[in-house]
């Protein structure tokens, strides 16, 4: 390892440490706010029907859901390990779709809400996908918002990543 490499590793370590501290601060702050609310406004947290609320993702604050991802793994709005766009419901997609296949199969495909629904139905009919219950709505919203088709006509322009002298 060259000195330059070491320097890069140190830089990265410091960056990660800073990130961790930032995240910890946010979490502590959120915890304090939560405790205050719990103490003074307990009615906000009482659930009338445990079974339904347990699976009703639409009742979950999306911020709470995305907080589940490790912020150090998010770069430019992409959750690096999965390659998925970070948005409400991304953790649901990781945990549901990632059970059986590469998440690359999500990121390379494009469809509208109906198209994604068709894909889910196809996986249920032929590939052993289970009934997604109340999570399906949030998953479809995520997919339709973030992996929608783009009209590229009958032929798209060529992209050249690297020009080289012949």
């Amino acid at each position: 390892m060259t000195d330059q490499d070491k320097e890069k590793v140190y830089e990265q370590a410091i960056k990660q440490a800073k990130n961790t501290i930032n995240v910890a601060s946010v979490l502590v702050l959120a915890g304090v706010v939560f405790m205050i609310q719990l103490t003074y406004f307990p009615q906000f947290f009482s659930s009338t029907d445990q079974n339904i609320s347990a699976f009703d993702t639409t009742a979950v604050d999306p911020m709470v859901m995305t907080m589940d991802l490790d912020p150090t793994e998010i770069e430019n709005g992409i959750h690096v390990p999965s390659g998925l766009i970070v948005d409400d419901g991304v953790d649901l997609v990781i945990r549901t779709c990632g059970v059986c296949h590469s998440l690359g199969l999500v990121t390379q495909n494009k469809a509208d809400r109906e198209g994604w629904k068709d894909i889910i139905v196809w996986m249920q009919e032929t590939q052993g996908l289970w009934n997604l219950g109340a999570t399906e709505d949030a998953i479809l919203t995520y997919l339709a918002n973030n992996y929608a088709p783009v009209d590229e006509g009958r032929r798209r322009n060529l992209e050249v990543l690297e020009w080289h002298d012949l």
Binding site: F55, M65, D68, L69, G98, W130, G133
Partner: peptide, 28 residues
């Protein structure tokens, strides 16, 4: 990533009632 999965598996909110619980996410 695995740690994140372990943490997530502990939360009951988003799995849906028919999730086969013996499966581990393998997308990563």
């Amino acid at each position: 990533a695995l740690a994140a999965f372990a943490a997530l598996a502990g939360t009951k909110i988003v799995f849906g009632e028919n999730f086969p619980s013996e499966l581990e996410p393998i997308g990563l």
